[in-house]
Structures are given as C-alpha cells and as structure tokens.
Design a binder for these strands. Structure first.
Length: 223
DNA sequence: GCGACAG
DNA sequence: ATCTTGTCGC
C-alpha cells in the first residue's frame, strides 16, 4: 500500500466533509452504532452495525459483516482498514439510521478524516466520532466531575470535545464525522447515554460484535 | 533525531 | 484490535 497516495486521498476527501448539521430540522428516529473487530488472527475484519430507536434507545436491528482484512492497522489510516467491512454491514441494514455513532475519531484526525468522516462521506449519512483515546490535538484533562468538558484543539481550531461521560472513567473524545456540527455531536452523544461510559449505540454494537450476554439475552427474546 | 500514535 | 483471572474500589 502506498501511504503517500492514501494521504493524498484523505486530504481530498476531507474537503468534502460537511461540518454543518443536516438533522436540525428533523430529529433522528433511528440512531445507529458501529464497531469493528477482527478474527482469525486479524485475517478477517468483522463490522457490527446496530440500529436503536430514539429516544427509547431500544435495540431494533443489528447486522454483522465479515470480509478479508484489506490493510494492517496504521495510526492515521484506520478508515481504509475498517470502512470496507462497515459498508458491507451497512448494505445489509433493512432501515438506515438517520445518525450513526462510530467507534473512533471524526475530524479530530491529523488530516481531518477519521473513520467517522470517511464512512459518513461514503454513505452520505450523518456521523459522529466517539473515541476512547486521543489521536491528535491538545487538551486539558476534564475535572473528575462527571459531565466535565474540555475542548480538543490544534493550532487554535477546535477539533472536538473531551468529555467525562461517567465518574471514575476516562473521558471520551467526541468529534464531527459528517453533516453534524461539533455542538450537535456532543449533544447527541449526551442524548444517547444510559449510565455507562459509552453511549448506547456504541455499547450495543460492541455487545453484538463480541456476543456479550446482554446481546445474547436480547437475541433469545427477539428471535 | 525523538516521542506519539483511533482500532 | 486481541490474548485473558483475578482483583481493587465504589
């Protein structure tokens, strides 16, 4: 793989990312969550997508796609590795979410094209990046108080938010993916919380992908 | 040159 | 990301 070419592609795509809101007029009915994992020692990429109803945050649908891994993990190029599997799972969805929370960064990326931006562009769906670790930018650690907030910045421009979603937990890194403003991104993540560190769409996507007990129980009741 | 570095 | 049990703290 040619990283210089991929880097150029990121810069070109980053220009197409829309930082304004699309859903101000029509609040989302279906909020999705995306998570990617690997199997068979990394040879298989597995993407899990879930659709929750809003505001109940009840799980409505899930889809899992498995495809041969196309690229190794290289910081800054994650989207090229995860996007193919996410697209496969997206096509299997019977109802497309109005808004999608993606596990990873959005605009808080060295070239402003995290996986949330990249996937949002490919499917033209509003997305928000919700990451567990910093990739780039600077920030002051939010206070210990739950709800504490700090801007994630780089060269006097704000890339996202560092938000303490829960007491005694490390903060989350929230940023615009596509067609969602920074303030709206934070707002919707907050509206998708249910007492855990991660928002429900992300938690469910992870539960589905990892076949966690919460999902197995849901499956028994709904299938 | 050295350290940092989503999942 | 993934391999994995117990353990400390609220």
């Amino acid at each position: 793989m040619d990283l210089a070419a991929l880097r150029a592609q990121q810069q070109a795509l980053a220009h197409l990312v829309v930082t304004e809101d699309r859903l101000i007029a029509d609040p989302p009915r279906w909020v999705g969550g995306a998570d990617v994992g690997f199997e068979d020692e990394g040879r298989i990429t597995r993407a899990a997508l879930v659709v929750l109803a809003w505001p109940s945050l009840a799980l409505m649908e899930y889809q899992i796609a498995r495809i041969p891994t196309v690229m190794p993990y290289i910081p800054g190029f994650l989207s090229f590795r995860e996007t193919p599997a996410l697209q496969a799972a997206w096509q299997q969805l019977s109802r497309k979410p109005d808004l999608l929370l993606v596990d990873g960064h959005g605009r808080s990326h060295p070239r402003r094209l995290g996986v949330a931006c990249h996937f949002g562009l490919l499917e033209d769906v509003p997305t928000i990046g919700v990451a567990k670790k910093r990739l780039c930018g600077q920030f002051q650690l939010p206070s210990e108080a739950p709800g504490a907030l700090a801007p994630l910045t780089d060269k006097d421009q704000q890339l996202g938010w560092v938000w303490r979603s829960k007491a005694r937990c490390n903060p989350l890194f929230i940023s615009t993916g596509h067609r969602v403003s920074l303030d709206t991104a934070l707002s919707w993540v907050q509206r998708c919380m249910a007492g855990y560190r991660l928002p429900e769409p992300t938690r469910w996507a992870d539960a589905v992908a990892s076949r966690k007990p919460a999902f197995l129980r849901w499956q028994e009741i709904h299938e």
